[in-house]
Each structure stands twice: as structure tokens, then as C-alpha cells.
Simulated scan of single mutants.
Amino acid sequence: MINILSYVVAALILWLVFSMLKNPVMLKMSFKNAFRRKAETLLVILGSLIGTALIVGSMAMNDSFQKFLYARVEHSLGEIDEVLKPGDGKPYFDAEKLKEQLAWLEDSTLIDGVLPAITKNITIGIPGETRKLTPGKTMDTFLIGINPAEVNSFGSKGGSTDVFEALGEKSDGYITAIINKKVADSLGVGKGDLLEILPDASYRLLSWIKLPVV
């Protein structure tokens, strides 16, 4: 939008210059009046500058805000275009309603894939440090639970899903989970390490309840 406005302004300026050069009398009259009434000329110039600055500034802010929103959506959802959530205040879909929704979505030719998931904002950390919320050893993150068997049919065709093969398996009695590089670097953990999950803040007080470990 700003580029288009710039082209329009440039075209108008060129047209004015061409018109003034074509008609020398108008050129002389314009400059004569401009220098004769200096205060009015200054006010006109200032008004034009302020008006232009306001218009360009508002457009720039609008474009920046849109790009910020799109960047946040792309960062959070990636290739996911639409997320369905229950609208009755419940945290999860009713099983029967979910089946109906999935059947409708899977039959649509406009949808590449459907992946049911359970999501929750949680706190994870090094075992023994999670309840204390020790800085550097705990962090807030987003937990996503999916059926590993359905991953292959979701997303772009040809994409690698090898990383999900370990999901659903148990290692030394613990359920396997996958974390991204940012979480791993923040907590200083790697493959095979254990992480403790704090489902919500109330579990900090319920010290007799053992926190889930993955």
C-alpha cells in the first residue's frame, strides 16, 4: 500500500512540474505569491508534511501489526490453517461430536489432513525442581498429545515423520515425549533425559501427589 502511494505522489509531482514548465506564467505567479505570503506558505507546507506523515505512519503501523500477527500465527501453528475447539466451555470435545467433526473434515477435498490433539499450557522442568519453579531448570511450554499412528496422514506429503516413531513407547518405564530445540537448550537436556510436568499451579501445593515424568 505504501509503495502504491509513493508512486501516486511521484506521478502527481511530475505532472505538476510538467504543467508549470509548460505554462511559465503560472510558474511565475505561483512563486511570486509563495514568497509574498511567507506565513501562509509555511503553514501550507507544514500542514502538508504533517498530513503526509500521519497517513504514511498509520499505514506503516497497520502493515507492521498485520505482519506481526501473521508471524505469530505462523510461528504457533506452522502449516495448520484452522484449529477447532469446543464452544460450550468444556476443555475437550465430546467423543460423539468429535467423530462427526472428523468425518466431515476428512471428507472435504479442501483439507489435506486432520489430526486430533489434546493441548494444554504446562510447566516442565528437571525432576525435583519443577514445583520450586527454579529459574533455568523450569519453563512454561505447550503440551500436545496426539496419536502417533495418525501423524503419517497429516501435513505435507513427503514430509519426514521419523521423529514421531518413538511416541507411545516406554523407556525404562517412562512414556516417551518429544521437545523442540528451544526447550532442550533452555533446560540443558537431551535425548534420554527425564522431565517433570506440572499440570497447573495447584500442584505446587499438593506436594503429596507425584508429578508426571516423561
Rank of each mutant, 00 (worst) to 15 (best):
V213S: 05
K132L: 13
F93K: 03
P86R: 02
I13C: 12
R131M: 04
A10M: 15
I80T: 12
K85I: 15
I146N: 02
L49Y: 04
Q101S: 11
F142T: 10
A177Y: 03
A60F: 14
K28S: 14
V44W: 05
S48H: 03
K157C: 04
E100D: 14
L27V: 02
P199T: 05
M20S: 07
N147F: 03
N62E: 15
K99V: 03
V189C: 10
F164S: 03
L167T: 03
S64E: 15
K97A: 10
E74R: 08
L42P: 00
A201R: 10
A95Q: 08
G188M: 03
I118P: 00
R204W: 04
A103M: 06
N121F: 13
L54H: 01
V213M: 06
F35R: 07
W208C: 04
I144L: 08
N147K: 06
G158V: 06
N23F: 06
F164W: 09
I179C: 05
H75E: 15
L16A: 10
F18T: 12
G173P: 01
T176Y: 01
D88R: 01
F18M: 12
P135G: 03
G158D: 08
L5M: 12
Y7R: 14
K28N: 08
L211H: 01
L16V: 13
E165F: 10
T130W: 00
L105T: 02
A39R: 11
V114P: 01
V213L: 08
D200W: 06
A10R: 06
P24R: 04
G128I: 05
M26C: 06
L167G: 00
S186A: 15
E169N: 11
S207Q: 14
S156I: 12
L211K: 01
G47T: 02
A34M: 11
P24M: 02
V114N: 07
I55F: 13
L77A: 12
V17G: 11
E165P: 03
K28P: 00
S108M: 04
W208T: 09
L205E: 13
F18H: 08
E169D: 08
K137L: 08
S153R: 14
A60G: 07
V25N: 09
N121G: 07
P148A: 08
M1G: 13
V183P: 02
F93A: 04
T134C: 05
E106H: 10
I55L: 15
S202R: 13
M61L: 15
L205M: 14
E96G: 06
D63G: 05
I55E: 09
L102W: 02
G159A: 12
L195N: 01
I2R: 13
S30R: 04
R37I: 09
L205P: 01
